[in-house]
Simulated scan of single mutants.
Amino acid sequence: MDTIRNVYCVGRNYKLHAQELGNDVPTSPMIFSKPTHALVQTQGQEVVLPADRGEVHHEAELVIHIGKPYTAGAKADDIIDRIALGIDFTLRDVQSELKKKGHPWLAAKGFRNSAIITEFHPFPGVEGCKQTDFSLLKNGEQVQRGNISDVIFDFQTIIDFIAANFGLGAGDIIYTGTPAGVGPVANGDRIELKWGKEVLGQCTIKMG
């Protein structure tokens, strides 16, 4: 965790997710970031989320780790070295108000513990990732399931866009977007993140 430098996130990268929130489907990558203070690794523990700022929604995502500096023409298969699963927790009511005012999303996206992440595992390659679905279970029930084959902007497009606009280097991670099925979490909810049939991480939500 202490090797992570920048936390980039891709918004609305699955068409059905954009539609379920009533958002336009983007024509270029929509990138935002989270502070590293938002990161918390799942170790079966309680994770405290704000109880006084409206609904907190789960957004399960595949997370990629950049293993070497980006250079022009670098291929995703060459510079990604590890993957994890994560949750981009979002203060949905706060975000809705910020969007109405045209303000940045940071208050809705960057609060402490808003970036859940599992342990990292070796990157199986872009095509390898397409062979496995990822999913989020809440209290034993699957609420989200996705596959990177369904993204609007693939890893290469995201990497090139971030590098050109913000910079990208070793130690940066990218939350690559969430599939449909986002929804609120409540106090005591048990969350599991699965890669295929394997549970990569779990935690219990504590609203406090």
Score class of each variant (00 low, 15 high):
102 G>W: 13
102 G>D: 10
40 V>S: 07
189 D>Q: 10
62 L>V: 10
164 A>P: 08
8 Y>F: 10
163 A>S: 09
142 Q>A: 13
113 N>H: 10
61 E>I: 04
30 M>Y: 08
58 H>G: 04
150 D>V: 06
132 T>Y: 09
70 Y>P: 07
110 G>M: 03
88 D>H: 09
32 F>I: 05
73 G>C: 09
100 K>P: 13
19 Q>W: 03
30 M>F: 11
40 V>Y: 03
81 D>M: 11
46 E>H: 15
206 K>C: 10
107 A>G: 12
39 L>V: 11
197 K>G: 11
200 L>M: 14
27 T>D: 12
87 I>W: 01
153 F>N: 00
162 I>V: 12
199 V>T: 07
77 D>T: 03
196 G>E: 09
172 D>S: 06
5 R>M: 03
63 V>R: 03
171 G>C: 10
56 V>F: 03
202 Q>G: 09
163 A>C: 11
181 G>Y: 02
162 I>F: 05
33 S>H: 11
37 H>N: 11
60 A>V: 12
36 T>I: 10
203 C>E: 05
179 P>G: 07
12 R>Y: 09
119 E>L: 14
180 A>R: 03
122 P>V: 11
110 G>Y: 02
19 Q>N: 11
187 N>F: 05
180 A>Q: 09
133 D>M: 11
14 Y>V: 04
15 K>A: 07
131 Q>Y: 05
137 L>H: 15
159 I>L: 04
169 G>E: 07
136 L>T: 07
128 G>W: 06
33 S>C: 14
52 D>E: 15
154 D>L: 02
21 L>H: 12
167 G>W: 06
66 I>C: 04
182 V>D: 00
145 R>Y: 03
149 S>R: 15
125 G>C: 12
58 H>T: 10
57 H>T: 02
45 Q>A: 02
57 H>L: 02
170 A>R: 10
11 G>M: 04
80 I>N: 02
36 T>K: 06
33 S>T: 14
28 S>R: 13
135 S>L: 09
68 K>E: 03
3 T>G: 15
111 F>S: 00
193 L>I: 07
43 Q>K: 15
188 G>F: 06
6 N>M: 07
81 D>P: 08
132 T>A: 12
10 V>Q: 00
96 S>P: 10
57 H>C: 02
75 K>P: 01
28 S>L: 14
52 D>Q: 13
122 P>A: 13
2 D>Y: 11
150 D>H: 12
76 A>L: 04
70 Y>R: 11
115 A>G: 08
129 C>D: 01
57 H>R: 03
53 R>G: 05
141 E>V: 15
145 R>K: 13
101 K>F: 08
157 T>K: 14
73 G>P: 05
132 T>F: 10
164 A>Q: 14
116 I>H: 01
